[in-house]
Design a protein around this nucleic acid. Structure first.
Lengths: 353, 353
DNA sequence: GTGACCGATGTAAACGGTTACATCAACGAC
DNA sequence: GTCGTTGATGTAACCGTTTACATCGGTCAC
């Protein structure tokens, strides 16, 4: 296809070493020689083959990224941040999505490593119990985790404090007068951070003297929100008045399902999500959420990884600040007067058959 | 870092050729030899270096992807489709986002080519006028466009029929009784498809005997929706009652801005978007939109690209079906004065029944 | 004039695979 | 016994770079 360095060298009447030196700016080249070589480069449309370069330098200036899914804006944002920082430093990304199939992590990372990526940025299902990470540690491959919960293994991680955030959500609800809390979470075994959020939430509820929140685990990948949410409200009198969803996408689906169940948000049920995806602020009602600085997390993770590649050793965990962002979807608990309790359900337009 | 094929060969007491043949399944290897080699591979944790392989085979089994942004779910969905198909065929992705900076396209594609991607899938600002595509054509680099508008150059493209879709939106509004239409679009020069949608929309309005829609061009990247939308409604009597937004993200922002202007959707203004991103169906009001099969577009584009890599030549443009998906954000025009009601000065071509 | 030094450039050996071709043993046909 | 064939394996060139080291004028101090 393209011209090689040898073609250029021949055309310019110099050796390949001279061309290489000029192209990379290593070593000095006399001005008139440089001009001659440059002319040849332009004429032949020479573009150095990165593969050849990588092979001889054993570095690719490529970063591997493995995330659960691109369809969730929270990951798309992080990747955007990674991409921006990587680009700024002259690195290119190769990325793969696991689609939440935990057992695929290994193979994806394997592929990336075969391509000799210089380092990896990943979100795994569970950082505390991960064959992939064990393998990376064993082979001394540089990597940084994002979103994952920091563990006793002291793996390099960029994250928010999920436990505290969960606790704050419980406080938030308690401050609004809610007494019966619940959580709707994606598969807990597939997400260490969801577990952390739950732990904080449950602990927070307990600290405020509230009944232990019911925790509903749903299949986030192909979600039937209506069916998933229904059981929570089968028993009307004991039904929760405040729902913590483990992520915003889930919260949005849940709010839709609640509407179809005839439950108003926030009139009957308050809902808060997690992530702070941009679209949440555009919803009606606007989505209350715990916002994570996703783009920034991607940026910081990249910075840390590149620092590590440059030989520096850094702290195991970087914790970035989260923000509990109130929204119209979460309001004060309905006054617990008996009258209210009798009319908790207004059915939607569909005529009963 | 890892063991090389030579290490394995030595450990197993065979030549590198034998190891290579076993690993790739090319050529026969005696059973006991195979076992010996396999043992060595396992023991050393040998993983073939893709760089070395690529250099000698001149193929990388890597696809380059260039899209405007990952933050727009419509592109994230397409990438998910590309990723799925590529993975299924044993290809890996390298991708880059232009962040709508048109002049960056060239450099990004250049980087990808330096990495010797086997082919490219891209969405450029304007397929009819694109130095990047000219260069790719000249160098005979295989690529497939997605989302872009097919042009006279017959470049391989996977898309929906944006013009027809735009016309259908005008029809849709007209059928609902709207008479004053407008469009809010991202920068037209940065998007050939936005132009096509506008052209169809304007033509459709004309065909129905409506006044030419006002077309508002906004900076989509950092959008101040409130300021952008305001001028349309400065004169409230002449203000449009139906708004076509060139994409869903824009529509969502516009709906928010309308609310802050005190305008109800759809009571005062009907809004329809374009793309069919999943979150639209979860909004309140649900977002009317022209849905494109984004994931499928990514999948098909990948299939076509891989076919091209396998030597097949395919049709220039694949047009996938779009769907005008009604939603609560678009409703009948508010009844004007009774006099107007009696004088329907347009009809839809079908005979009244 | 000689030797040290210097800057510009060339030579050739990696890097880690693939693969055309060579080699070699075993076997059967004659 | 010779020859041809076949299957298993080895040898070494090659892919496109980088780079340590060699080379070669020229300049300068003495």
């Amino acid at each position: 296809m393209g011209a090689t360095i040898r073609d250029v060298a021949q055309a310019a009447g110099v050796s390949v070493a001279t061309v290489s030196r000029l192209v990379n700016g290593t070593g000095r080249v006399r001005d008139d020689t440089a001009r001659r070589v440059q002319t040849a480069i332009d004429r032949l449309g020479f573009r150095p083959n990165a593969i050849g370069r990588n092979l001889s330098t054993a570095r690719t200036r490529t970063l591997g990224v493995v995330i659960p899914s691109l369809s969730n804006p929270v990951f798309a944002d992080a990747v955007a941040g990674i991409n921006a920082e990587a680009k700024a430093q002259g690195y290119t990304l190769m990325f793969m999505a696991t689609d939440y199939v935990r057992t695929d992590e290994q193979a994806l990372v394997g592929t990336l490593l075969a391509y000799q990526v210089d380092g990896l940025i990943l979100t795994v299902a569970d950082a505390a119990d991960s064959p992939v990470l064990d393998a990376l540690d064993r082979d001394d491959v540089p990597y940084v985790l994002i979103y994952n919960q920091p563990t006793a293994r002291n793996r390099p991680t960029v994250t928010v404090d999920n436990v505290t955030a969960g606790r704050e959500v419980a406080d938030f609800f308690a401050d609004l007068g809610h007494e019966r809390l619940a959580m709707v979470s994606g598969t807990l075994t597939a997400s260490d951070r969801a577990r952390a959020r739950r732990d904080g939430f449950v602990a927070g509820a307990e600290a405020r003297g509230l009944a232990a929140p019911r925790v509903l685990e749903v299949d986030f990948v192909d979600l039937d929100a209506d069916a998933a949410v229904a059981p929570l409200f089968a028993d009307r009198t004991g039904a929760p008045t405040a729902l913590f969803c483990s992520n915003d996408l889930l919260a949005i689906s849940v709010i839709g399902a609640l509407g179809r169940l005839g439950l108003g948000v926030p009139a009957d049920v308050s809902v808060i999500g997690f992530d702070g995806i941009a679209v949440g602020a555009q919803l009606h009602p606007t989505l209350a959420t715990v916002a994570q600085p996703s783009r920034e997390m991607g940026r910081v993770a990249t910075t840390r990884l590149l620092a590590r590649l440059a030989g520096e050793t850094a702290a195991p965990a970087t914790v970035l600040p989260h923000t509990l962002r109130p929204g119209e979807s979460a309001g004060p608990a309905a006054k617990p007067c008996p009258a209210d309790l009798q009319v908790p359900f207004h059915h939607n337009g569909r005529s009963p058959s």
